[in-house]
Design a binder for these strands. Sequence first.
RNA 1: GGGGACGUGGUGCAGCCUGGUUAGCAUGCCGGUCUGUCACACCGGUGGCCGCGAGUUCAAAUCUCGUCGUCCCCGCCA
Length: 586
Amino acid sequence: MLKRTHNCGELRKENVGERVILNGWVDRRRDLGGIIFITLRDRYGLTQIVFNPGTDVYELAKNLGGEYVIGVEGMVRERPADATNPSMPTGEIEVLAEKLEVFSSSKVTPIYTNRDDETSEEMRLKYRYLDLRRPNMKENIIVRHRIAQIVRDYLNSLDFIEIETPILTKSTPEGARDFLVPSRLKKGKFYALPQSPQLFKQLLMIAGFDKYYQLARCFRDEDFRADRQPEFTQIDVEMSFVDRDEVLEVAEGLFVEIFKKVLGVTLKTPFRRYTYNDVMESYGSDKPDTRYGMKFVELNDIFEKTEFRAFREVIENSGVVKGFFVDEIYSRKEISNFENLAKSYGSKGLAWFRFSNGEVHSPILKFLKPLKIEELKRKFDIASDGTVFVVADDRKIVNTSLGAIRSELIKKKGKIQDSFDVFWVIDFPMFEWDEEENRFVAAHHPFTMPYLSDLERYKDGDLSKVRAQSYDLVINGYEILSGSIRIHKKEIQERVFDILKISKEEAKKKFGFLLEAFEYGAPPHGGFAVGFDRLVAIIRNVDSIRDVIAFPKTATGADIMTGAPSEVNKRQLDELGIEVKLKGDT
RNA sequence: GGGGACGUGGUGCAGCCUGGUUAGCAUGCCGGUCUGUCACACCGGUGGCCGCGAGUUCAAAUCUCGUCGUCCCCGCCA
């Protein structure tokens, strides 16, 4: 076998005159009749091989097809001055083939391996091993690896240790649907795959491993999206004896390191911080992309004494009038769609002002004195043409409906390239009212430490006002990290369960091991988890996390390549004591 | 659970609305010419029961219903 002495990405002018052997795939063949060029590809790059006529290798090279795997021995030589390829790192040299060994031939591939477009995702998934040969996909996977190593290096340098937690574990109530695994030895009982290592990492803190991390695989049996897969990876981190700001500092350092080393981008620290309340009031979302502006402004003072009764009454009933400016003009039809959107969030209507060519148009213009319009322009600092959207209602309805319109407008505007909007959102609400279940549920998770002062203050009042010591990191409108300071005292944990209407018996059954552990010296602790796939997707500027996962699943949870999920034979089912009930059997 | 888009030679798309032609284009693949190409070029050729099933019709890629698959969105995702 012709064993490689170099890879396909490393030969340069300095190597001219050396005898080398390269191994790789035939990326392209250019047969000029009298001379044959081949670009040979491996993980590291491309190198041009030349076959001169009148030689034995030339005759062999005539039969080479795309994706053949070969070994080539030959001399590195400089290309003629007018035949260099500046777009190739190895473009100044080529290898003059003297020996050729075909390790493996290839059928014509069903998808392109050397272009970055023109193939449906279905075909790409079916032939993923070919898809992964494409330059972009290869780079995605390599960058993913590099980020993982940067994470490990950084956390190791801070004395964190990597610990694995079980994949076969216990089903937990609350939160997403679990994937279940039947137990053969205990028929009728099931393991669950972890939605996250949450409880284990807290137990590791109690065990005394005060700084833990893991690139943890997590599983959630919910419906999938472009940025959601049934199995995904989290950078899971937990620390003891820390307050919130120390956790945030560790996380900031991690992101600074990743962005610097992978993209050469310097993120300014400390990252901006907004409270949950701030972002909801300013952008109507808990994960806004602030690069687009369109910040909400309260307009009560403009409308409190207007003729426009709808707005005036809202204000008199302690509601709020708010709006935002966008530097675009929209058609009547578009605006009507935005109004429907606003209404679906509970607002009664959508007012708008169109500023163009120095003129103002608005359905409620007749209720407003010119002075008020001037005031409006001042409020939004309007210097160009554009539109102001205004909603009047309860504060929550106003924020969410304006927020929905804002994100719709952002979709229309399209992606902003090559910049990163990075900030913290802190102090999320601890509890959210669940209409369906008719009880409070944990906004983050039930192990989050609430502000005890809030808990005291609202114990007989509005529990939705209780804030949690939690934090999200938002990058370009995506929630990329989420974490909190945890409860480490049994009494507080029981109190939270109590509020969540989780009974003592249920709590004992489901989380008894954690509550018991709290009785043997639990340190104060907190941590976070980073959506690793999403992070890689943002850094690689791809829309779907499928493109940064080597073997992802489709939106129905299928693996087109292997055919999973698949039926199993009767013996397997019998061993597990399982009977399958198909749709329509009932 | 709900809504939308798509399925046509190996691959990516057009044709479908308004039913009737030899199903078109690009690329790939095969053959030919070509000694400096690099998405080689030029010339010629190969390749398709239009996802599957049923229905309407004299006639279906085209219309209808069902079904399967892929993608996107709402719900869901502590």
